[in-house]
Simulated scan of single mutants.
Amino acid sequence: MNNTLKRGLKISAAAIAAITAVTALTGCAKESTPTPTAESITIYSGRSEDLIAPLLEAFTEETGIEIEVRYAGSAELAAQILEEGSNVQADVFFSQDAGALGALTEAGLFKTLESDITDLVDAKYRAADNTWVGVSGRSRVLSYNPELIDAADLPTSIFDLADPAWKGKIGIAPSNASFQSFVTAMRVIEGEAATTEWLTAMKENAVIFEKNGQILEAVEAGEITAGLINHYYWFERAAEVGEENMKSEMAWFEAGDVGNLVNVAGVGVLSDNAAAVTFANWLLGETAQTFFVEKTSEYSLTGIPAQAWLPALDTIASPEIDLSALAPLAETLELIRNAGLTD
């Protein structure tokens, strides 16, 4: 049975080369050249400037530590860090998803974080060897237009979307990093054959978009019945147009379905600069965790309650998966291309 929410409410080192070939597809934000000083840290950020610039400003205000930032896609930055190796120019990698973090763990490029930091979050949201830690969470959801489908008729599994009845009704963004991480999770949990079959069905059934936000707009406009997005896109749009003007609603699939994947944004420390550890710890403190909940509508990973109209993070029936297993993304990208979903 679907858990419906009413209105109002990661890439192994070998894989990086393939990922960089598609960074133009996943998009990257404005970049600034890092010029570190003695009292500063340099961050390579896969999270966009528009999203986290206020957060970084708050860090400097509270700690006095200056920050230099290079913004780009998480996959692109992971590739850059691998290329720089022991001469890496960043102190911290702030990734949009766990897959890119897992790739750098595999390459042995992160410093080990002390357990007093990593123990602030549940073990499933951090590396088993404490080389990276998640700082905010997001859930994959099915956004749908209740004028076009009743809640009782929603699919109970993501695999139901392969039914020909969904032809032209479901929206996906195959060039988006979040979709790719979800497909990687499908490969890990369900296997290559089942994933290939599902992607082939999506070639027939799905309407292709570049971004999650575009999918939501199409659902709102009634152009498609439903779409696969991250939950917080609903709240971004609601902030722009008013919650009372939102037409779409969100639903989760049955318990344990890979369509309910909860992924994290997280950080790993790349240098011996003590301020980098201070930053990682600060991201799990009250200021940053409240920011993620109130400003980006993400989930806190330290227990700060989510927005009132969201289900609590520990109630989402997400699949059991080690998020570091999202690292081998190259095979996923190949499957997506072979299915004809990207160039």
Rank of each mutant, 00 (worst) to 15 (best):
F94I: 04
E83F: 14
T20D: 15
N176R: 01
K295V: 07
A221W: 10
I321G: 09
L25Y: 01
V121G: 10
E192N: 14
S143G: 11
E217N: 08
D129G: 12
F279M: 14
G134S: 02
E62F: 03
T342K: 10
E114M: 02
R237T: 09
A152P: 09
V183Y: 07
A327E: 13
S271C: 10
Y299M: 10
Q289P: 06
Q180V: 02
S318W: 00
T290M: 03
D163G: 03
A265T: 12
S181P: 06
R47C: 14
V262K: 02
N87F: 01
G303D: 00
T33G: 02
A29G: 13
S175Y: 00
A79V: 11
A79F: 12
S143Q: 05
L113H: 04
G303P: 00
I304L: 09
S74I: 00
L228Y: 09
K211Y: 02
P34K: 05
F291Q: 12
P305Q: 04
M250P: 01
I65N: 11
P54V: 01
G222W: 07
G285V: 00
G222P: 07
I52R: 04
Y233R: 11
D257C: 05
A226C: 13
L148I: 05
W252S: 06
G137V: 14
T195L: 15
A325F: 02
S248M: 01
K295E: 11
I336E: 10
V22M: 13
S324L: 06
A152F: 08
A15L: 05
L301H: 09
F182P: 03
N145W: 05
